[in-house]
């Protein structure tokens, strides 16, 4: 297995750890953290492809990840604010109980 494939397997595994966490836990904070892990896995892919690409254009992968981290930071802030708002509304943060948008 080449180093690139190792990196990709690493990122897939991290992605799936995050996915399982988001799917299996009912605590909204943990679900959000799972999503953060998935985002990190995606960033690892960017860096891995940049590192091992045949002719790395200067700093492309790095640029991707910088913007991605900025967006992820915004997402974390809004997400956790939503958690607090949900908590204020229903006095707990179990995700399955936040289903007011049910059709």
């Amino acid at each position: 297995m080449t180093a690139l494939q190792l990196c990709l397997v690493f990122s897939s595994a991290l992605f799936c750890v995050g996915l399982v966490g988001a799917l299996a836990r009912s605590n909204t904070i943990l679900v959000l953290l799972g999503i953060e892990l998935m985002l990190n896995a995606a960033n690892i892919n960017f860096i891995a492809f940049w590192r091992f690409s045949p002719s790395p254009a200067p700093a492309t992968g790095v640029m991707f990840v910088i913007f991605s981290i900025a967006v992820a930071a915004a997402e974390a802030a809004v997400g956790l604010a939503l958690v607090i708002a949900v908590y204020r509304h229903q006095k707990n943060i179990r995700l399955q109980e936040a289903n007011r948008l049910k059709g």
Binding site: L8, V9, S12, F15, C16, V20, A22, L23, A24, S26
Partner: peptide, 20 residues
């Protein structure tokens, strides 16, 4: 919930690693 989560996550992982 945990079991279904593991199944879904495991399937995604298998597919991804297989593709890689």
């Amino acid at each position: 919930r945990a079991i279904s989560g593991f199944i879904a996550g495991g399937a995604v992982c298998g597919v991804l690693v297989g593709a890689i």
